Simulated assay, not measured.
Amino acid sequence: MKVVILAGGLGTRLREETEFRPKPMVEIGERPILWHIMKIYAAHGFSDFVICLGYKGDVIRDYFMNYELRNRDFTVTLGSRDLEVHDSHGESGWRVTLAETGQSAMTGGRIRKIRPYVGDSTFMVTYGDGVANVDVARLAAFHSRQHRLATVTAVRPSSRYGELAIRDGAVTLFQEKPQVTSGWINGGFFVFEPGVFDLIEGEDDTLETGLLPRLAARNQLSVYEHEGFWQCMDTYREAQQLNAMWDAGAAPWKVWS
């Protein structure tokens, strides 16, 4: 099953970083968040990726074209330029298709453009700026049992604020930025049947206000409830939080060994 990653947006709320590179290339622990997302899927056996490029897509192209030389030891014979690459790494065997989907296309439009790379098979989709400890193999199995065109993963976001429990003038619980206990939001991590392509109305169509509401109106959108960790990286502050987790060795999305 192919994994489609939306990586073409402008990332305007993270302008401190995205002025120079696309948001999926903003680093967590010296690796792009895009790499972290791919590692999540690969840990569950899904390593055939289609990356939808747009804004500053050449940065992503260059990263993968030079991936082996950036991440492995090698010997080069000067003059002949013969190259011998040594050792292996955890990403060996990944298949990565880099698909240009345009500077201005919206999320639905980008998915429509990668139809030739997906064909008539079930496929996964996620955003290029969010990490989670979602069991995507279990998500795929859940989707298969529902017999609908699409499944969306619902998550409970972390609160921006600390939570206090108070009794008799004293604090009985203090939790810094806990996950909220009520209310679900779209966490990405979708599974789609190829029939969704026929419901996307063009380049300007979005998942969030176009395709997903249409699917819901037709009773063709299942929901997979994820109670675990999930965090998007919309702002510089959130990027700092994710880096702090990684540096502390406490990154819940690190489901690989």
Rank of each mutant, 00 (worst) to 15 (best):
S182E: 14
Q175Y: 02
T126D: 11
R138P: 00
G187K: 00
L14W: 05
D62V: 03
W246E: 14
T181V: 10
A251Y: 10
A137N: 11
L14P: 02
G8E: 08
D73E: 13
P32W: 10
S158N: 11
V76W: 04
D205M: 10
F197C: 11
I40K: 04
L98H: 07
G54W: 01
A248P: 00
T122H: 10
V4I: 14
N66R: 12
A132R: 00
G79E: 08
R156A: 11
F197S: 07
G210T: 09
S104Q: 06
S47V: 00
A216S: 11
T101G: 07
A150H: 09
L53W: 01
Q220R: 04
A43M: 01
E68A: 14
S80R: 12
V50C: 10
V125F: 13
P252L: 07
K2I: 01
C232W: 10
S121C: 10
T77E: 13
T181Q: 09
L173S: 15
A141F: 06
V134Q: 04
S92W: 01
D204H: 15
F142S: 05
A105H: 13
D62A: 13
I200T: 06
A250G: 00
K113C: 00
H147S: 12
S159E: 12
G228L: 04
W253E: 04
V3N: 06
S159Q: 11
A137F: 11
F49V: 02
R110S: 14
A248H: 07
F190K: 03
D247L: 14
A140K: 09
G228D: 11
V155H: 05
N219E: 15
L212D: 08
F229T: 05
L242E: 01
F189Q: 05
T97E: 06
R115K: 15
A150G: 08
A132P: 05
A251K: 05
V76L: 14
I33C: 02
E201S: 11
A165P: 02
I166C: 05
P32L: 05
F190G: 05
S159N: 12
T97R: 14
D204E: 14
F197R: 03
T97D: 15
D168C: 06
M1C: 06
S158V: 03
Q103S: 10
A251H: 06
Y224I: 01
Q179L: 11
G119F: 02
N219W: 03
T151I: 08
V3L: 07
D129M: 01
D168S: 15
C52N: 01
F74P: 08
I37T: 09
F49E: 03
G119M: 08
G162F: 14
A216G: 07
S158M: 13
A239G: 10
T209V: 04
G169S: 07
W256F: 05
G93D: 09
I60D: 01
V223T: 15
R95S: 11
L221C: 08
N219V: 00
A250D: 15
H36P: 03
F46A: 03
G202H: 08
D198P: 00
R95C: 08
V96G: 05
E201K: 13
S121Y: 08
A150K: 12
L69H: 08
Q241A: 15
G109L: 02
G57L: 05
E19Y: 02
V50R: 01
G108C: 03
N186V: 02
